[in-house]
Design a protein around this nucleic acid. Structure first.
Length: 199
DNA sequence: ACCGGGATGTTCT
DNA sequence: GAACATCCCGGTG
């Protein structure tokens, strides 16, 4: 398991997004393998939080590459992005889904509660991280992790590579859940992985 | 299986 | 006041 250097993040979000597939996201003892992402491209992208410039909410997106951008939405959900590009240029990749790898008990507790009873059919492993807010909830990522440096491992959050390469031909589609910028095929996913979010 | 609506509160117009 | 990079549950077929 090899932590990714700063230079890995020094690319445009469109280039970084498919490279994030099959990378490991680590938070303490919890480890997941990223299987679905979306690229966002700042000022030129009407779907991006940075489309109308830098605000208190999206400031991390304009900051240094290799940091987490975590935002709050729909009054109850957190979503996590990886900031890339160069400082001052708002580029980020939304982490949309992942496969559980380690720390399954903690992932389940964070998503479904710590009750010891047998989970119902809806509480399957593929429901742990099969969406951006589910992924953040399972991994325990909230506003306190906004701005965390993945290269330094701030707050125990790290991005790492193991033996698994990104897919040579990832699946692609338009981005999900938007009302603008819906034309660009800037969603990338590991074809056939059961943890990829469903439409 | 699919579809519709409610939850819940921050951010920006 | 509206929108929101979402999710869950309960309806119906």
């Amino acid at each position: 398991m090899r932590k990714l250097p700063r230079s890995f993040y020094r690319r445009d979000s469109l280039e970084l997004a498919p490279l994030l597939l099959n990378k490991l996201l680590v938070h303490g003892s919890r480890v997941v393998r990223i299987v679905e992402v979306e690229a966002y491209r700042g000022e030129s992208d009407p779907a991006s939080h940075a489309y109308r410039g830098c605000t208190a909410r999206n400031a991390t997106m304009f900051g240094r590459e290799g940091h987490l951008y975590v935002y709050f939405t729909y009054g109850m959900h957190w979503c996590a992005n990886v900031v890339c590009g160069e400082k001052g240029v708002a580029r980020a990749v939304l982490l949309r889904a992942a496969a559980p790898v380690a720390g399954l008990a903690e992932l389940r507790a964070a998503r479904f509660g710590s009750s010891a009873r047998r989970p119902p059919a809806s509480q399957r492993d593929r429901d742990l991280c099969s969406g951006p807010a589910k992924l953040a909830q399972a991994m325990g990522l909230t506003g306190e992790h906004d701005g965390a440096d993945l290269v330094l491992g701030d707050l125990g959050v790290v991005l790492a590579a193991d033996g698994i390469e990104p897919p040579a031909s990832p699946g692609t589609s338009t981005r999900i859940g938007l009302s603008a910028g819906t034309e660009q095929p800037w969603r990338f996913f590991v074809t056939g992985d059961p943890n990829v979010s469903r439409r």
